[in-house]
Nucleic acid binder design. Structure first.
Lengths: 238, 238
DNA sequence: ATTAAAAGTTGATATATATCATATTTTAAA
DNA sequence: TTTAAAATATGATATATATCAACTTTTAAT
């Protein structure tokens, strides 16, 4: 069989990852009083796999901190669903309603796997941001990291073709979430497809192809990246 | 001839516009001293059409304020170019190097038409942000508006097909830049294609089709939207 | 344990849009 | 004013990927 063909090179320079990784401990900047205020206005909730944490269109009453688990952040419009990012533990989400004139959630957030999330009252959060410039600067850093990542994702989804997008998602999961070339991925083929912007059937066919080329091994939901270098090549060149 | 066929509906709710519009006067929050500090560390420069204002990969030494003109913000990777947004006067650009651990420009910025841009020393700007929480909050608002817009663009570029994307760009230009259904667009067909993620030939063919359907009129670079409602329908449903 | 539903798989076919080739027109330059 | 280069235009063809249909396997429910 022909090797997977490689067309237009996209270099390693742009981070095009799907995973929103932004583990700054912005809270360490706060003084005792501020921390107490936040703590008093925070609830910690456990969500089961598939449960919705916040709903697009609802009033944005809180920002969220992922204690454990894995979330997907997505926009829906009728039948079309776009996954904006997937978010592992240690990250803040839902910051975009701060000072943007938008007091509703622009996206829904759902737990992929059982997750624990802290809900922080947005008004309290807002008050602290607008009174503590260093904390605000940290938030600016988080937002900017997020924008940069979103630009990368925009690049990936529009400029790569499907093998490249699939390879990118696999690498991203391996590097940023599981930190291993061996992982059990609790996502259906359909959900993988949503992540890389293609149909379930295409995901299946392409995974099969990657398997045949010995780039990856799959048994059900267990993934192994056999040839990391080649997978990177497919990502960067396809 | 058949009417342009309409498939999967995308509603009006998500702002999928290409134009980064964010005209807050964040500077009015500053006191005299801060304003003076900024003024002393700002230069105003005129750029001709096609001139580059900052280059991806270079040290991010300043943030930019567009006094007049029209800029494009884009990422390049070998042959592939992605336009992140187009920015009219009254907007700040280049904020993404603030506190993100990135002291280099992640994108290039170029003038579409003759433009006047203020270059503000990034260190001075950073100092003011991290000492004035209200100013920082305004910046957060600007960044968030930008993220929301980028999400919309991501949605548009990945979920719409080409007629929808083209319609969106035309509506966006009409609504947000020219504020008229009648405008002279100083962009080549190639540049329009870059905006909506398609080839020059496709742009030409589709503009021709829209012309034949009497949705728009074109004479060279002069565009007229004849049937605004229909164009919106094409955007939202295609 | 049996049944139903969801997820996964495979092949055949359709289609939107890119690519390639070649004119023609417009713009800029010498 | 002539020439070169860039932009616009149009047709023929290729191709990546979606869509549709059918079938199998796995998972969940009664």
């Amino acid at each position: 069989m022909d090797k997977i063909e490689i067309k237009n090179q996209i270099s390693d320079k742009i981070n095009t990852c799907t995973v929103g990784l932004n583990k700054r401990d912005c809270f360490k900047i706060l003084n005792k009083e501020e921390r107490k205020l936040i703590d008093e206005n925070t609830v910690e909730i456990n969500f089961g796999a598939g449960e919705i944490i916040c709903k697009q269109g609802a009033f944005a009453t809180h920002v969220m901190y992922v204690c454990s688990g894995l979330l997907k952040v997505y926009m829906k419009d009728n039948n079309e669903q776009l996954i904006l990012k997937i978010v592992p533990d240690g990250n803040l989400v839902g910051l975009n309603s701060l000072f943007s004139g938008n007091n509703i959630f622009l996206y829904s957030i759902k737990a992929y796997v059982p997750s624990t999330v802290k809900l922080i009252d947005i008004n309290v959060f807002r008050r602290i941001v607008s009174s503590n410039a260093l904390f605000a600067s940290e938030i600016i850093g988080i937002l900017n990291t997020n924008i940069i990542q979103t630009y990368g994702r925009l690049f990936s989804l529009t400029k790569r073709q499907s093998y490249g997008r699939l390879a990118e998602v696999l690498l991203c999961l391996s590097d940023r979430i599981f930190k291993s070339t061996d992982f059990v991925l609790q996502l259906s083929r359909k959900e993988i497809g949503e992540l890389c912007g293609m149909t379930t059937e295409s995901v299946i066919r392409m995974l099969k192809r990657l398997k045949e080329e010995d780039v990856i091994r799959i048994e059900g939901k267990k993934f192994t990246i056999n040839n990391y270098k080649q997978l990177k090549k497919i990502r960067d060149l396809g």
